[in-house]
Computed example of a mutant assay.
Amino acid sequence: MAQVRYFAAAREAAGVAEEPRSERTLGELRAALSAAHPALGGILPKCAVLVGGVRVEDDTPLNAEDLIDVLPPFAGG
């Protein structure tokens, strides 16, 4: 199963630091994460979601070995 890691506010909203997921595309994963973690649904559209360190489209297929990072917008500088 693909492994999803949550950072900062996304981690707080999901209530977990990481979890395995079996959705077949990034779009399916986004929908499933919003359903599984309602608090995450409010910020997920603003988050960068990286598959293997790269931003990809929602129709991108996911593989069992994928590492997916959910990164909310960060402020500062």
Rank of each mutant, 00 (worst) to 15 (best):
A2P: 15
A2M: 10
V4Q: 07
R5I: 09
R5F: 13
R5C: 07
R5A: 02
Y6L: 04
Y6Q: 10
Y6C: 04
Y6N: 02
F7H: 08
A8E: 04
A8D: 02
A9R: 14
A9I: 07
A10I: 01
A10P: 08
R11M: 09
E12Y: 03
A14W: 03
G15L: 14
V16I: 12
A17S: 13
A17W: 01
E18R: 11
P20K: 06
P20G: 06
S22G: 08
S22A: 15
R24E: 14
R24G: 12
T25L: 03
T25E: 05
T25A: 06
T25F: 04
L26Q: 08
L26E: 08
L26A: 12
E28I: 05
E28F: 03
L29Y: 06
L29H: 01
R30V: 12
R30A: 10
R30Q: 11
A31M: 05
L33V: 10
L33I: 02
L33G: 04
A35F: 02
A35T: 13
A36I: 13
H37L: 12
H37G: 07
H37V: 06
A39Y: 00
L40Y: 10
L40E: 08
G41F: 10
G41Q: 05
G42P: 01
G42W: 00
I43L: 14
I43F: 00
L44M: 12
L44W: 11
P45T: 01
P45W: 01
P45E: 03
K46N: 04
K46A: 08
C47P: 04
C47N: 04
A48F: 02
A48T: 10
V49F: 00
V51T: 04
V51L: 03
G52S: 09
G52E: 11
G53V: 10
G53Y: 07
G53E: 06
R55I: 15
R55A: 13
E57W: 07
E57G: 02
E57Y: 00
D58G: 14
T60E: 13
P61R: 13
P61G: 14
L62P: 04
L62V: 10
L62K: 03
N63D: 04
N63K: 13
A64E: 15
E65V: 05
D66I: 09
D66P: 06
D66W: 11
I68D: 08
I68Y: 11
I68H: 08
I68C: 13
D69A: 15
P72N: 10
P72L: 07
P73H: 05
P73R: 04
F74C: 03
A75C: 06
G77N: 07
G77R: 01
